[in-house]
């Protein structure tokens, strides 16, 4: 379980606004992918699933996928901590194209 992306309403009526300073928890409407200039790419051959990258990711975007890990690129900011923490050098930081 983790907060997931919803569609941001383009038109807001009065009823859509919270009537107090409380609202649904874990309500995401925008991605962080655009912040990234480099992206971590996992080499599934080298990855042993030690989960050090999963543990140290400040954004929590790395998750278990079978015996290795995968990355939620919608919210990865490309900080590179995962690449640095990986002792097996199974994570490469690649320049974002486009």
């Amino acid at each position: 379980m983790k907060p997931h992306l919803r569609n941001l309403k383009t038109k807001w009526t009065l009823q859509d606004y919270p009537d107090s300073t409380a609202y649904e928890a874990g309500y995401l409407t925008s991605k962080n992918a655009g912040w990234r200039s480099v992206r971590p790419v996992i080499d599934a051959e080298k990855c042993t699933g030690c989960l050090q990258c999963y543990l140290h990711c400040p954004d929590g975007v790395i998750f278990k996928s079978g015996k290795v890990v995968a990355i939620d690129y919608d919210f990865c900011k490309g900080c590179g901590i995962c690449g640095r923490i990986c002792r097996l050098k199974a994570i490469k930081m690649e320049v974002e194209s486009k």
């Binding site: 925008s30 991605k31 990234r36 400040p58 919210f75 900011k77």
Partner: peptide, 8 residues
Amino acid sequence: YGHKACAG
């Protein structure tokens, strides 16, 4: 999750 903190 999905927070707007600086990278790293």
